[in-house]
Design a protein around this nucleic acid. Sequence first.
DNA 1: TCATCCAGTAAACAACTGTTCGCCGAGTCT
DNA 2: AGACTCGGCGAACAGTTGTTTACTGGATGA
Lengths: 209, 209
Amino acid sequence: MSHTLGVRQAQKLQTRQALLDAGLRLLENQSLSSLGLREVTRAVGVAPAGFYRHFRDIADLGVALVGESLGSLHAMIQAILDEQDDAAEVINRSVDVIARHVREHRAHIRFIARERHGGVKPVREAIAAELGQFADEVGAALGAQPLSEGWSAADLRMLSELYVDRMLMTATAFMEAPAEDPEAEARIAGTARRQLYLMHLGRQHWLGG
Amino acid sequence: MSHTLGVRQAQKLQTRQALLDAGLRLLENQSLSSLGLREVTRAVGVAPAGFYRHFRDIADLGVALVGESLGSLHAMIQAILDEQDDAAEVINRSVDVIARHVREHRAHIRFIARERHGGVKPVREAIAAELGQFADEVGAALGAQPLSEGWSAADLRMLSELYVDRMLMTATAFMEAPAEDPEAEARIAGTARRQLYLMHLGRQHWLGG
DNA sequence: TCATCCAGTAAACAACTGTTCGCCGAGTCT
DNA sequence: AGACTCGGCGAACAGTTGTTTACTGGATGA
């Protein structure tokens, strides 16, 4: 299993990754449905026909980008969920983690925000599927907390979706702020913390408490 | 002032509206940044050059669509805000109003959801500006309610944005459900009501109540 | 070592794009 | 009635697009 890839296959993967990287970079100022195949290959320095060795079409490349973009986010969420601490502390830490993630993966967040409701169906579906899985995992983690005693499955699910949505909206807000602007970042972080705290209060009093 | 438009200007407005309508329809399966000028004129039955009599470019048409799309939504929100009733009742009515609005303006909601973070900067900015104004008005309405006594301006603002975001996400969820599917609609409505109610609970207990 | 594989190539294809130009002819104003 | 305005037209422009084709040459495996 730990068999080093052949030179052949390694080079192929490298070109594939170059195509993905170039695509992501080109998507900074447009959306996937207007991204051209030639545009991507030109940016990489590869002949147009070479594209087909890696992807069926641009939508296919988009779906691959979904995996890449949501992969790191997934790990991030899990890390947040595993924390157990005072609620306010968890909120503070979560917002910081999100801010940091956006700083390091701005293009990925932009891609997800832009294509979540974008014009390319397979990509929309891939994003929806992965976000749904996020909600599953968040639901499982929340369900294990004492605060969730007596909650129905449907209620837990709506709470999970609320959290996942909020997290993505917060990340998007950070992403849209001008890069390297600590003041804007702080403002967004403050709003995000308050919103999460309000949701937490609602959660505490859900069962007529 | 109530001077009927001249035949000339009336016909021009009619063509302009036809271009907007065709654009909106074509955006069902793509995003604005891939919408072609010729594509739009072809759909209307107008020569390509005629497009420039009405819009500078496709981004300009997009900005016009923002006004059209958010115009009706604006009236809808005001209607919701003016209601004064039991909280649960306001929530029920609001969700119904949103569902109804989406049924009647599906393409408009799709456009806003798709282009809010889309690839065309002027359009993103126009949407952000109008949504910001929505938040202002929601903030003013909420601030006038007894429940908001003692709230700081910043807290009111974060609550308004939370509500506006949620409303848009709910509308988007309705929009993405298969048309004429009462079961899916009911499920989304149920989730939306619960989420709004949880936010309402958080609001009630915001000041350490 | 030698036949096989296959990632990447160059060239050609028809179809399409946004934009500019001068022109027409119906609506407008005096 | 006559001069003027201006929305829409048709043609032409140089570029660009996605896709197919037959090919080359280095890695691969017997």
